[in-house]
Amino acid sequence: MTDSSRQRVALALAINGRRHRVTIEPSTTLLDLLRDELGLFGTKKGCDMGACGACTVLVDGRRINACLALAVMQEGRDVQTIEGLAEGEALHPLQQAFVEHDALQCGYCTPGQIMSALGLIGEGRATDAAGIAEQMSGNLCRCGAHPNIVAAIAAYAGA
């Protein structure tokens, strides 16, 4: 809904190390900013209600649901998305681990799974398979690849 009487706000933030300046409606979520304003379609919209984790990104190194965050509240923050991981054709080792462990079928949840796993490893919680499964409960996979997802994360984390 566009209402010309409505406020628009300026926002400056870093995404995958690159500075962005945009002017947006205050009701724009971080997820919609990434996808609709910046064309970064790697971060997925599943439930759009914080239940599925497909939109997981790192903000200042911490994983959150981009669908439940207002973009304007991320002023000055450092956002990392799935697009920031590979270097050219060289996959990030965690992406490579997902390939090697067959940790996906349709792939829709995969960017969120990988960003969540990076957050989990950064939190120092990737201790064993049971702990990884518990700490990944905010990321659903409708294809049922969870055992292989946990295996891929454990292999990468050395757990």
């Binding site: 914080g50 984790g53 997981t56 911490r62 994983r63 959150i64 649901n65 439940l68 965050a69 969540s116 957050g119 989990l120 939190e123 919680r125 700490q135 990944m136 409960s137 905010g138 990321n139």
Partner: peptide, 9 residues
């Protein structure tokens, strides 16, 4: 409670 993502926010 909740998920790790929600607890972080």
């Amino acid at each position: 409670g909740a998920s790790a993502q929600v607890r972080n926010a």
